[in-house]
Amino acid sequence: MNNWSWEIFLEAFPYVLEGIGITIGLTIACYLFALIFGFIWTFVRRIPVKPVRWVILWIMEFIRSTPPLVQLFFIYYAWPMVPGIGMTLSPFTSAVLGLGIHYSTYIGEVYRSGIDGVDKGQWEASRALNFSTRQKWTKIILPQAIPPTIPMLGNYLIIMFKEVPLASTIGVVGILQMANNFGAENWRYLEPLTIVAILFLVLSYPSAILINKLERKMNRRFDKKTPTGSKPISKANAPG
């Protein structure tokens, strides 16, 4: 432990902290992008043409099972070189696109599980009442499908927060990059990297507890409300 220096710790702390705005801002930007793009996946995979659906499913599978780090590099380094449609993007925009698209495939699955959880009778009722497609989705299906997924969506916010330091590899100056810069300038990596770890822990641990509470609260609420025989939420949370 004799290599630990509190002086350097105190010196590095404000330096590293300067990056927190970028880290949190990028988290929110990526998350919003993923939330919106997730909807697009949910709807395009419902297109009633089999080959189209099949292609969409494989694209989603491809995005989901390849590393987000490589996808970031692709968007940042390769996209500008693609003839015709390529353009140079700033590191921040590249990160929003890269991480946003990667996690949108996961979020699309969350939406789907919510929609699948809506009771069949609700679809039939909206048809019986002669609702248009638009009304069916906005008035009947989505208001019931989305609330039960809120805890899961919250989890993805925390996951996103922990993925955002990947963006330091393409030069987004969040807390991890600030720590690396400090290390390069002063040749001390121990303290700044420890500070980054502490900052992540301090921000993500309370959020995780909060989400957990929310989840329990929602479970109780939806269990009470749903009539016997249809319990979408308890099914979604059953072990295994």
Binding site: K162, P165, S168, L190, V196, F200, Y205
Partner: peptide, 14 residues
């Protein structure tokens, strides 16, 4: 509670 890339750098550098 912390991200993998931070843990990796910490194990490797710190």
């Amino acid at each position: 509670g912390t991200s993998l890339i931070v843990q990796l750098f910490w194990l490797y550098y710190a």
